[in-house]
């Protein structure tokens, strides 16, 4: 046999064996022991990487869950309680049942309710328009309708209604990741309890001006009269800075506050129509369309 070939085979095998030994010891030294449960938990997660849980992605969420072993503070809004239950099984814990949330647009300043006074033709970004101007209707708190929330939504759950000029959140698609809440420069969007059969009651206004100036720009603005506060039997409504706020944790959806609101700024969604009492006047505000 050719001597060269023999020499090559021998030297290569020698290098290979020495490297194998070195690699073995290096591998021992730098061994990373990962909890196998992380992979199992990760598989249960939806893999949307939306950041709705407050962590960098699904993997980071899984790691955090396994590391802390505490389910009370962490929640995957996309998977909801079903996913959390499955994860709890893997980790041998009990998941707390959490009410599903949904993004709620707290502005009803549609083109009919808050007529356009000036026209804005700058860059179509709410963030910039908010810096530059109070908005087309003049309300300093109202929705600018340029769709920063739509752009931020990874789940295609928000669109801008052509007629009202306001964003509409889809009951089915919204998973309450909270991306739109951060994107809105005016903090109009809030995550609230989705409610049984998607029934919700909330004050659809965040204007803190006094009654007069607020109504000047928008006929459905909250004027801070406090009638709803008096009406509420559960202490769920508070009044601050001329603005009423309904606490969704305390609200029992009794529907008593909605009819007393003189401006119609309290909205109730997806409730069956009320039985009309004799002598009750019809409201002039336009009905709210919800998908």
């Amino acid at each position: 046999m050719n001597e060269t070939i023999v020499f090559a085979v021998i030297s290569l095998s020698a290098i290979g064996s020495i490297s194998a030994v070195i690699l073995y010891f290096v591998a021992q030294k730098f061994k990373v022991i990962e909890d196998p449960r992380i992979d199992i938990v990760n598989e249960k997660l939806p893999g949307a990487n939306c950041g709705g849980c407050g962590l960098a992605g699904c993997r980071a969420f899984a790691e955090e869950l396994v590391k802390t072993g505490d389910l009370s503070k962490l929640n995957c809004p996309v998977g909801g309680s079903e996913t959390m239950r499955q994860i709890a099984e893997v980790l041998g814990l009990v998941a707390e049942e959490k009410d599903p949330l949904i993004a709620v647009i707290r502005c009803n300043g549609s083109r009919a309710n808050a007529p356009v006074k000036v026209s804005y033709e700058g860059a179509s970004s709410c963030a910039f328009a908010h810096v530059l101007t109070a908005g087309e209707s003049g309300c300093p708190n109202g929705c600018l309708g340029l769709g920063d929330c739509v752009v931020s939504c990874q789940f295609d759950a928000i669109y801008i209604d052509d007629i009202t000029g306001l964003p509409v959140v889809s009951n089915e698609k919204c998973i309450a990741c909270g991306a739109c809440v951060t994107a809105c420069p005016r903090s109009i969007i809030e995550l609230r309890k989705k409610g049984k059969k998607d029934r919700r009651i909330f004050v659809s206004c965040i204007n803190t001006e006094k009654g007069g100036p607020a109504r000047k720009n928008c006929q459905v603005a909250c004027i801070g009269c406090g009638k709803c506060v008096k009406e509420c039997a559960y202490d769920a409504i508070t009044l601050q800075n001329n603005l009423a706020y309904i606490d969704h944790e305390k609200c029992k959806l009794c529907r008593k506050c909605e009819p007393v609101c003189p401006t119609g700024s309290i909205l109730e969604l997806n409730f069956p129509p009320r039985k009309e009492k004799a002598g009750e006047t019809l409201k002039t505000t336009e009905p709210v369309t919800v998908e």
């Binding site: 700058g122 860059a123 970004s125 963030a127 910039f128 810096v131 530059l132």
Partner: peptide, 13 residues
């Protein structure tokens, strides 16, 4: 293109 608008936004942020 609304370059200045975005520059102003960028400066602000």
């Amino acid at each position: 293109r609304p370059l200045l608008d975005y520059l102003r936004l960028g400066k602000n942020k």
